[in-house]
Design a protein around this nucleic acid. Structure first.
Length: 273
DNA sequence: AACCAGGCGCATA
DNA sequence: TATGCGCATGGT
């Protein structure tokens, strides 16, 4: 893989497995929108950017600082060999079908707080409305980047607020969970920094200290916000997959990359049948 | 008009 | 430990 960097463009080339549209729109992140054919706009790594793809090239347009390319490589998990992982997953016939139907999905490494807060909002909710609530959360309480873009508000910022302050979000019963999460994270009661490296069961225990965070949301925070590809979120779709296809449990080939298998199966099950 | 949405907390047994 | 219900809001 190669990197071409200048202050307005970062281009990664030679990526073994990549579909920008599938990766940005497979239900793992909620802040990307397609602004024209093949061009996606959103905010991540503290910057508003446009993202597109040309073959094995990932093209990111924005306004960058020295060293930003490393942040974006991490965001797209470019140092993980998805080609090899997918080949291994294809030992299972269902995963083979899912990967061949939707090749190139990668797991994004989002900010831990953003992932946690986003999936708190996701509970008993649908994706269009999740995006709406998160958009309003950022517009109301994030930093203004200009051009209608806002950063995701920090836990520290949200910890200053009350449930009533979140009324404009129309997030319903989730508002109290957002505030509890912000207070526990900002106050140090929950330490997000250690979740990427500590024992995964310990990480789960840490996260479910937050009101409104159960097994599913904790698993999503670990997978999408902490780079824990061994985390395995089970939502209604994955529950269906498990009962229909894997009543005896996940196949051996998913060992240690359960989260990646989950993302392919999730997207496949939601779209195909 | 009922039902559902990338669930969870709480009460009950 | 295991169920079942209510929950804010909005779309179908």
């Amino acid at each position: 893989m190669n990197v071409d960097f200048n202050k307005n463009t970062i281009i990664f080339s030679g990526i073994d497995t990549l579909s920008v549209p599938l990766t940005l729109d497979c239900g793992q992140a909620f802040r990307w929108s397609e602004i024209s054919d093949g061009s996606w706009h959103g905010v991540a790594c503290g910057k508003a950017v446009d993202i597109s793809q040309n073959g094995d090239k990932l093209i990111i347009n924005g306004c960058f600082d020295e060293g930003d390319e490393e942040l974006w490589a991490e965001y797209f998990d470019l140092n993980r060999n998805y080609g090899r992982i997918c080949e291994r997953l294809k030992a299972d016939s269902h995963l083979k079908a899912a990967i061949e139907a939707y090749p190139g999905i990668r797991i994004l490494k989002q900010e831990p707080w953003e992932a946690l807060c986003s999936f708190i909002i996701s509970q008993n909710n649908n994706i269009p409305r999740i995006k709406g609530i998160i958009g309003r959360l950022c517009a109301c309480f994030g930093d203004d980047l200009g051009g209608g873009d806002f950063t995701f508000p920090s836990a520290e910022r949200l910890a200053e607020l009350t449930v009533d302050d979140l009324a404009p979000l129309r997030s319903g019963f989730r508002a109290k969970y957002i505030i509890d999460a912000a207070q526990k994270v900002a106050g140090g009661d929950v330490n997000l920094k250690k979740l990427s490296s500590c024992d995964i069961d310990e990480a789960r225990q840490e996260l479910i200290k937050i009101k409104g965070v159960g097994a599913k949301v904790a698993e999503c925070a670990l997978l999408y916000g902490c780079g824990r590809v061994d985390a395995f979120p089970v939502d209604v779709w994955v529950r269906r997959i498990m009962s229909e296809l894997y009543p005896e449990g996940l196949p051996e080939c998913t060992q240690d990359v359960e989260g990646i298998a989950q993302q392919y199966l999730f997207h496949w099950r939601r779209n195909v049948e």
